[in-house]
């Protein structure tokens, strides 16, 4: 699976939690999940578990520490997919 496909699926997973829908239209790898998309930080655990289910991977707590942007999420998932 290439990075573009992973990003497309990541954005699809994020969509239900996004409060700033306008930012979704111009989403890129640099888009910050909390600051730009306004995803509630308390809901990130649900997002991460949705990533695990969608890509059949396991994500550790520490992995999440480096995820701030959509690109970070894509990078993390891609690294787990090998």
């Amino acid at each position: 699976m290439n990075q573009a496909e992973v990003q497309e699926r990541v954005v699809k997973i994020l969509t239900p939690w996004v409060k700033n829908e306008a930012a979704l239209k111009s989403v890129s790898a640099e888009t910050n999940i909390l600051d730009d998309l306004k995803v509630n930080s308390a809901r990130l655990v649900d997002v991460v578990i949705a990533f695990e289910d969608e890509f059949d991977i396991e994500i550790e707590d520490e992995d999440v520490d480096s995820v701030n942007t959509v690109g970070d999420a894509v990078g993390l998932i891609s690294s787990k997919l090998g």
């Binding site: 509630n40 930080s41 308390a42 990130l44 655990v45 991460v48």
Partner: peptide, 8 residues
């Protein structure tokens, strides 16, 4: 429901 990622 699920939990939040923040520790604040």
């Amino acid at each position: 429901t699920g939990g939040g990622v923040h520790g604040g």
